[in-house]
Write a protein that binds this DNA or RNA. Structure first.
Lengths: 356, 356
DNA sequence: ATGAAAGCGCTAACAG
DNA sequence: CTGTTAGCGCTTTCAT
């Protein structure tokens, strides 16, 4: 069943069917109606491959992430897909799983399917691989790429804002020994977070000297707290480079019988969905995944729709903000720590009452 | 840059280029080499749309899920994508977000892109929508579909096995008042889990009379524990229809100062990644998402490769198994509950030692 | 406003 | 073994 079949049955030419289907206004309403009736009767769906072949536009956007199982991405993928549906695009989703081979294959697949644009949300991608894409002048949007790479859009994250809020929140709770668990420092994003922490500490006259390196995963957070526990001067609060790290810290705290937030305040970064499900719910710096996805999609759309205008570098910005939940509290005084469960930032302070 | 350009530069015909690229063995190694050199020099990538158009096979598999933000899916998507890459397929990912309009659009998009097969992992899909797919005899694979729908593959989940293990594990820990928090009962999968629970209880002479209905989300789990707490005869253990529910139960327990596992044992279902990150780590019935994805992909591949053979219904099965972590313990005796932290099934029993 | 026909980039007969 | 050529299903001039 193809466009010719429709044309035959509607007794018009294939050109007219094409026009009717694409809502070209010049087509006679009578004919259009006739065409649509046949289309609906037969349950005809135009072949997108053929369309793409002739039009030169695939209506596919590529989305490259590092791994789907990274809890940072589901919300992004969902939002991206919602937008794709709204705008009649398809999304070609690939993951690099931190493997150069897979990065390469991702790029190859993008090109083979002739995507109209690619969002690269992978926090670390071999730049050389993108040559193929740039060569074909495929619109690209990045997160957190370095300085200026002409011709590709970039979403700049304002790490400083949220991290400053977190540090000041902790300071306001009278914490002075605030540790930071960094991420893998070969990642620009991890580096930027650590720098933002340092700056925020110095800004309020605190020495950023309790920094330990994690891996942005649970294990790293657990190890970090072990290391921190060994210190002679221990922290009363720890800010983490991402939420998984914070969850690791909390897990290790549980194993060491350290009460959160009474003995130790913990703050994460990202605000992945899971952070609202932890025990206690995690106070964290939100970097809205939904917003990020929206910006990325819109950036791609801009590049695609605007053919002639603007040849300069397009910059977008995403802010970060602290969201208060229940993993922070006043710094322990040194005596009645476990006894004073004063929670900070907890609007809904549930009381322990019933017992099963 | 197209196949003709390559042909011209390599001084061969387009047919030869096509053959070389597709590794047709009959092509002269000399020529093949010449072709490949040009291909690599120019960075040529064949246009998949054109390929699909002429070959009739798109090498795209559709994957329909309910929502990406449902933690059950990331691992599935990742595995599916890994397999796709291995087999030179692309994956067209759509979500229904429980919205009939989106289900319809999912199906439409699948057809428009001429996918070679569709895996429907949505746990509840309007069957009528699939008529278009069935009509076009697109290979389909379902999870947990009802009885026999001819011509489509089905993955049957053995809920009973894992749930029986869970119930018997609890019984062995001397629990007799075991509650069940069901999922939305319009879902076949939720219904099947509840029935498996009932059967497992009856099997060992326990009355399955503590059943409350949740929603497969955190909130439902929290509400469930509240309801259960109000009972005159309270449970000492609760088995949940999925992990999010169990996480909700644990959260509510935390708010009510009920200690897990000492005061209350909790078991989940699914074994989503997060279950290993909770506090305490959740004992749960594993329904391997990786396995499920593998089976689904393979089922599709079978249907596509085998054109002529087998016209009967293809059945696959996925087993479930209990995985022991740290959310279950001996039933409290009624006096020293919080004092006897005897953990069951915890191979690695970390001791509380250090304090920050 | 409608139709005839060219052609998007590729593969698969069919010849040679 | 290689080349020529006819489409795959659609959009889009260009005439009418």
């Amino acid at each position: 069943m193809d466009i010719r079949e429709i044309a035959r049955r509607a007794k018009v030419s294939t050109a007219t069917v094409s026009r009717a289907i694409n809502h070209v206004p010049t087509v006679d309403p009578q004919l259009a109606k006739r065409v649509w009736r046949v289309v609906d009767e037969l349950g005809y769906f135009p072949n997108t491959q053929a369309r793409a072949l002739v039009s030169g536009r695939s209506r596919i956007f590529g989305l490259i992430v590092s791994e789907f199982t990274n809890p940072f991405f589901p919300e992004i993928v969902q939002t991206f897909e919602n937008l794709a549906v709204e705008n009649n695009y398809e999304i070609l989703l690939t993951s690099t799983v931190h493997d150069p081979k897979r990065m390469e294959s991702s790029v190859r697949r993008m090109i083979e399917r002739r995507v109209d644009g690619v969002a690269i949300l992978t926090f670390g991608m071999e730049e050389t691989l993108l040559e193929h894409l740039r060569f074909r002048s495929v619109p690209l949007v990045f997160v957190d790429v370095g300085p200026d790479v002409k011709g590709i859009a970039n979403i700049k994250i304002n790490y400083q804002n949220g991290i400053r809020q977190a540090v000041q929140h902790l300071a306001a709770l009278r914490h002075t020994r605030i540790a930071f668990v960094a991420g893998p420092l070969h990642l620009k994003s991890a580096l930027a977070r650590r720098e933002a922490f340092k700056a925020s500490m110095i800004e309020i006259g605190l020495a950023p000297d309790l920094i330990v390196v994690g891996d942005h995963r649970l294990e790293g957070g657990m190890r970090a707290l072990i290391d921190l526990s060994l210190l002679s001067t221990r922290p009363t609060a720890v800010l983490c480079s991402n939420d998984m790290t914070a969850i690791g810290v909390m897990r290790q705290a549980y194993d060491q019988n350290i009460k959160i937030p009474d003995d130790l305040s913990v703050v994460g970064f990202d605000d992945i969905r899971m952070s609202d499900f932890t025990i206690p719910p995690l106070t964290t710096v939100q970097m809205s995944q939904k917003e990020l996805a929206k910006i990325a999609f819109q950036a791609l759309l801009n590049e695609v729709e605007d053919r002639p205008p603007s040849h300069e570098r397009h910059e977008y910005e995403l802010n970060t903000n602290l969201v208060l939940r229940r993993s922070t509290a006043l710094a322990p005084t040194g005596k009645s720590s476990s006894k004073s469960p004063k929670r900070a930032g907890a609007s809904r302070t549930r009381q322990a009452t019933t017992t099963v």
